[in-house]
Design a protein around this nucleic acid. Sequence first.
DNA 1: TTTTCTTGAAATTTCGAGATTTTGTGATTT
DNA 2: AAATCACAAAATCTCGAAATTTCAAGAAAA
Lengths: 213, 213
Amino acid sequence: MLQNTDIYETLKYRLMTNGFAHGQKVRAEHLRQEFGCSASTIREVLFRLSTLGLVEFRDQRGFRVPEKSAEVVNELTHMRVLLEAEGTAMSIRLGGIAWEAQLTAAHHQLSHLEMRLQTADDKAPFVDLWFAAEKQFHETLISACGSDSLRGLHHQIYCRFRQQLMVEDRAFDFISNNIRHHQQILDAALSGDEALTRQKIHDHLARHLLATA
Amino acid sequence: MLQNTDIYETLKYRLMTNGFAHGQKVRAEHLRQEFGCSASTIREVLFRLSTLGLVEFRDQRGFRVPEKSAEVVNELTHMRVLLEAEGTAMSIRLGGIAWEAQLTAAHHQLSHLEMRLQTADDKAPFVDLWFAAEKQFHETLISACGSDSLRGLHHQIYCRFRQQLMVEDRAFDFISNNIRHHQQILDAALSGDEALTRQKIHDHLARHLLATA
DNA sequence: TTTTCTTGAAATTTCGAGATTTTGTGATTT
DNA sequence: AAATCACAAAATCTCGAAATTTCAAGAAAA
């Protein structure tokens, strides 16, 4: 039978990748059957996920997937830029060769996938792979920052960001810009230019920012 | 009987203000009696608090208050500076007169308290009041930033920061510097100088940062 | 002495039944 | 038509007992 932690990871992944529709109720009583456990166990897991922001909890009315919202995407993007720029700058200072190698590897994998995505007719088989590779690349950027707190905050924000955007990202019409952006971020990071790297991270995510007055 | 939400707030406050010792186990079975409810109810609350980082959860070995750690304080301080500086800069742009008034009020209250603290022999009666006023001032700084996400992250970090430092802060030997710092932050914010405000927020918290190589 | 094994006690986790609260439907009133 | 109310159905929440796992202390083996 699935362990508590497995249920947590499974539901987290499903929530991040829009396995549940926005606004949909998430009923412990239903999931109970799928996971072969009691509703209380699911309830515990959902409480944990609610503090991450992947489900919303309201007293006496259960759990629900957050609605899609341009305003929220704007906020989450802003936080991603803030945290990724800072974390990457720290990684540049602290990471050394090992980090550069990891980042290059992560970029290589992502880049390869995005090239194929660009020409593929049916993008569907690539969705999960791309999702994992893009996550890996952005996590690697900040992986050598030396701060669990920063990585933790970024992880939280990244999960919610994906949850908000996974639906529309499935079209992959941004893909050719993305290839260029990821390359520019990699180049800037390897060159050790903190300010440029920050700028490129911002540019990469800028399309999700609302134009401010 | 206490509602679920009240238990959450009560335990959160107690964890933030060192009502539990660092490293101490937090047993649902014990708290059950104090709150007059079942262990499961406490368990739910602790799961929620664990995602905030105020208690650590490990599979099959329950909940435990995080240990005190200079490294963690350093990280949390760094995140506070990052988030408060950004949030305050946004508040300066968006807040308007109403925000300036609230900030002035919050500072007035804090300042009054810190003056009295400075001369008081027995600081104990002031601890809770100071705690509330200091929290209020720093939350007001970012209150007009317009981003629930930023406020949420800051709240999380602030709670953990307090939990780490509440013990030693009870001595209040930093109080005269604090009075000056808070004044400088207020002045900078009211003058509308974003860069200066960021700098003053950094300076205020700098004593908690480890000297980096 | 140090390590491994055994075993009982204690802590944690799971579970489903019953209590409570919300939600949906349709009748009644304004 | 809109608002209020009553009531049944459904969903949520609470609870303590049972099952499982960890912990601690002493015995046995290396």
